[in-house]
Design a protein around this nucleic acid. Structure first.
Lengths: 351, 351
DNA sequence: TTGTGTTCCGGTAGCGTTACCGGTAACGCT
DNA sequence: AGCGTTACCGGTAACGCTACCGGAACACAA
């Protein structure tokens, strides 16, 4: 690129046309990869474009092309940060989604403000975004229905209770809980403490919160275990307290399953303060990203929560849907996968 | 808002004008908060806007208003993810920046693809962004100069070696290292292992890598310590290895300072495998975000790396700069602050 | 009366692009 | 020669909005 470093003033398609001795139409055709243009002309124009460092104005493009066929797309990830205590977990979703967008030549937008229906619709109506990724999905979430009615593209990370027609990617939380507890039972544990997400979240019908508890119910029945759990805010101090409570309620417990890796140090510290070493005197299994699982000492035996992959796939699904709106609705429900690390073992005195 | 739920077809300013019995100009004036419009008219039009759920097309706005005075701004955070091993650290920058944008009614964009000069300029030329936040700044970074020459607004998280005229926010890494080592010396440690960022990063003149080593040099001189360090990739296994090497080289060491909280479990595990408990037999001090410091067991005594705040402030600086381009150039160099937690103590046998 | 503001509002020319229509030249075929 | 057909290209009306100009209506003073 020849730096005509003073020419900072913005070029238009007309300038290029003039310099290349062709019409604007021709330049536009070339820009959009239309046929109907001689190879020699194309080359000449492309050279001018390259030499001048011209780059078409996206606003004008979007306006002229009816904002639907635009070349450069933008998708928005909606992550309401209202209920404060969010964690690294979410962050990895962002990274994954951003990576997919970069790869697919799409702008990636992140909005953290909670949104009402008007705001959400305005996002589309004003042409600010071509599609959204919804997070924090509730069982009875109103957003998918609204967006569908207006024919605005979206995908969910999570799913509603009735999700026949929506694109989504989600982890099978019911199964995850069953798998984790099943693993502990298999190791010989019979008295297992369970630390779940706050009851308030469940009351609000947040998908994972609801499904985690239903999975727990199923696990209890299947393995004929007595319930022993706490629903708490997933912070280190809260989990610490909850663990102490569980130990008081059932001093004989030999294992703990917590649904949140990043607050599991709370459990581990509580156990340590009660003179129980992990994993020798008490096993700990979590639901956690690999990153977090590695970070905790001892490294967590955990159901893998592949957040970055999920973010990547969600964005990819959305981008595909934008390109071929008629494409079939993809739905991905990830099955849980347990990674054995250091924090769990067979209970003392087991066969 | 009255849901005329079928009217999904996009409204224009002309529709509003017609419905409100005024001219397009008047609607535009109201939309942009210009004076020169009677209160009663304003109310009437606003009611129509509200009832119909109209929302102006940003593309058209940007196009018409010369893309400079646009109402809704968009800023882009450039974080090249090329050199793979990035960590939670960066993520918190994103969150902070996104939060600031949400608060300031600005679109927050995240791009993870590395960029050459052309791409960077096109971002502005095509009207896709109004300003950028640069990360991964090198001592001799070419980007600030380029953007300045073209008069495109930006701020850096980090700083170059010569940064007189650029907006930036950065942590004083030299001072951070001196502070950490000073603290350990104060506690009575004399033989201190140091784990720094990879030599390759320093060779590439990445700011923090360079400054961290210069800070280390200064600390050695000031406290008359013998050098004892490793420059390694900041992953748990690499840090583990590095720690073992340090222990081999200087079995008498009583403390380790590592510049990266998220890989510090590597050090802690290496010490444990050599039968040294933290902090009793060996102290560990790190440079880490609060979040990470809390996550590691034992909780890390660490120089605080306030990444989310830095991201927030960077975005805020940029937004301000967009609003008042003439405003003085802000430069923020954060001084290190040590937070004492559990991972460091006085060495055995100290006075 | 005329002049001088003020306050409010409408008309319209762009902004940079694309979509569409139509035109010209060259070529091939009957 | 005459008539399609194809390959290429130019002209221009949108797209939805803002900026600017100018005009109507009214008030008030000289």
């Amino acid at each position: 690129m020849i730096q005509s470093s003073e020419s900072s003033e913005s070029l238009t398609i007309a300038d290029i046309a003039r310099l290349a001795q062709v019409s604007v139409s021709t330049v536009s055709r070339i820009l959009n990869g239309k046929p109907d243009v001689a190879e020699v002309t194309r080359q000449r124009v492309l050279k001018v474009i390259h030499d001048t460092g011209y780059s078409p104005d996206v606003s004008a493009q979007r306006l002229a092309s009816g904002a639907t066929v635009a070349k450069s797309r933008v998708i928005t990830l909606l992550f309401p940060m209202d209920h404060a205590e969010f964690t690294q977990l979410e962050l990895d979703f962002f990274i994954g989604a951003a990576a997919s967008c970069s790869k697919h030549d799409t702008f990636f937008n992140l909005m953290t403000e909670p949104m009402d229906a008007d705001h959400l619709l305005n996002l589309f109506r004003s042409g600010q975004t071509d599609g959204v990724i919804l997070m924090q999905i509730r069982m009875d979430d109103w957003r998918p229905e609204l967006l569908t009615r207006h024919d605005y593209p979206f995908v969910m990370i999570g799913r509603t209770s009735d999700n026949q027609h929506y694109r989504y990617i989600d982890l099978d939380f019911d199964a995850a809980v069953e798998t984790a507890i099943g693993y502990l039972v298999e190791q010989g544990h019979r008295r297992i403490g369970f630390i779940a997400r706050p009851a308030s979240a469940r009351a609000q019908q947040i998908g994972p919160s609801v499904r985690i508890m239903s999975g727990y119910q199923r696990a209890l029945e299947r393995y004929r275990l007595a319930p022993l759990y706490r629903e708490v805010k997933l912070t280190v101090p809260d989990v610490y307290e909850a663990t102490l409570e569980l130990l008081d309620e059932a001093p004989e417990l030999t294992a703990i399953f917590t649904v949140h890796g990043a607050s599991s140090p709370g459990a581990i510290r509580a156990l340590r303060d009660r003179d129980r070493l992990v994993p020798d005197d008490c096993s700990v299994v979590a639901l956690a990203t690999e990153r977090i699982a590695q970070l905790v000492t001892p490294a967590l035996t955990a159901i893998n929560f592949p957040t970055d992959t999920m973010g990547y796939q969600a964005a990819t699904m959305l981008i595909n849907a934008l390109q071929q709106p008629s494409a079939p609705v993809e739905q991905i429900l990830l099955q849980p996968r347990l990674a054995v690390r250091e924090s769990a073992s067979t209970p003392v005195g087991a066969t």
